[in-house]
């Protein structure tokens, strides 16, 4: 697992209070990991903070699974 993937998963485990085993690449924040709309906004903010980037809203809306988050951050993280 890439360093970015590890950091992303750690944030998700911490913020959503879920088991690490549940945080698979296919897992959807809302459907599988129990996040509500505010949780997903908070997750995006935490990713921004952790990787020191700014994710535009229109991009953020397309990030709905763990894998999508990792892929986006691997491409954009500095």
């Amino acid at each position: 697992m890439s360093d970015i993937a590890t950091r992303v998963k750690k944030i998700i485990v911490d913020k959503l209070g879920v088991d690490e085993a549940e945080v698979t690449n296919e897992a959807s924040f809302t459907n599988d990991l129990g996040a509500d709309s505010l949780d997903t906004v908070e997750l995006i903010m935490e990713f921004e903070k952790e990787f020191n980037i700014s994710i535009p809203d229109e991009q953020a809306e397309t990030i709905t699974t763990v894998g999508q988050a990792i892929a986006y951050l691997e491409e954009h993280a500095k």
Partner: peptide, 11 residues
């Protein structure tokens, strides 16, 4: 000055 407020701030 960039607004970065937590979505849980108000609630």
């Amino acid at each position: 000055g960039t607004p970065r407020f937590n979505p849980f701030f108000i609630p």
